[in-house]
Amino acid sequence: MTITCCIEYRIDPFQRAAFADYARNWLTIIPACGGDLLGYWLPHEGTNDIALALISFESLAAYEAYRARLRTDPAGAANFRLAQDQRFIVSERRTFLEPVT
């Protein structure tokens, strides 16, 4: 069974470029730590402060192992610090999805 973690970010719309840099940093970090990154999306029309990320895993246990590796990964820690220092993420929510088809 595959699960997909949908991360909904509320971002500072005036720091859109900073969030884009943050998202691009994950392109190599997430796969190295065990996630299957489907992508990051910035708002285009409508709401200007919601961005999304989709990352798939074999199971919830695989997600938990990924999170543990991510916490100890130097590049991952640096990217988390970047977000904290620049404060372009206001909040985030995670929803776990399973495929229907």
Rank of each mutant, 00 (worst) to 15 (best):
A51C: 13
L37Q: 02
T28V: 01
T47R: 10
P74Y: 05
R10A: 04
F88I: 09
R81M: 11
C6T: 02
F19P: 11
T47S: 09
G34C: 03
T95E: 13
L38T: 04
I29V: 01
D85C: 03
E58L: 03
P13W: 04
R81T: 05
T4L: 11
L52G: 00
Y9G: 01
W41T: 02
I11S: 03
R94V: 12
A65L: 06
T72H: 13
D85I: 00
F57K: 07
R10Y: 07
Y40Q: 07
G34N: 10
A62K: 10
D49P: 02
Y63V: 04
S56A: 15
P99F: 07
E8D: 12
A61M: 03
L27T: 08
Y22K: 03
Y63K: 10
A23Y: 08
A78S: 01
D85T: 02
H44F: 10
W41S: 09
Y9A: 06
A62Y: 05
I3Q: 08
Q86W: 14
A17G: 01
E98A: 15
S59N: 02
A75T: 06
E45A: 08
R87Y: 07
L60E: 09
Y63N: 12
N25Y: 03
S91Q: 12
I55E: 14
S59H: 02
Q15T: 02
L38S: 14
L52M: 01
I55F: 13
T2M: 11
P99V: 06
H44T: 11
E8F: 03
A23H: 01
R94W: 14
P43L: 04
A18Y: 07
G76Y: 02
P43W: 01
P13N: 11
E64T: 08
P74C: 07
T95P: 04
L37G: 13
A18E: 12
E58D: 15
S91M: 09
I50K: 05
M1Q: 03
A23W: 06
F19Q: 08
I11L: 06
G39F: 07
E58R: 12
E58G: 14
T28E: 04
G39Y: 11
I50G: 05
Q84N: 12
D12M: 05
S59Y: 04
Y66W: 07
F14P: 00
L37H: 11
R94M: 15
A75H: 06
R81K: 15
I89V: 15
T4Q: 02
Q15L: 13
T47D: 11
E45M: 05
A17Y: 04
A61R: 09
Q15H: 10
E64L: 12
R10K: 13
H44W: 10
C33Y: 01
R24C: 01
I3N: 03
M1F: 09
D85W: 00
V90G: 03
Y40A: 04
A83M: 08
L82C: 02
A17S: 14
R81D: 13
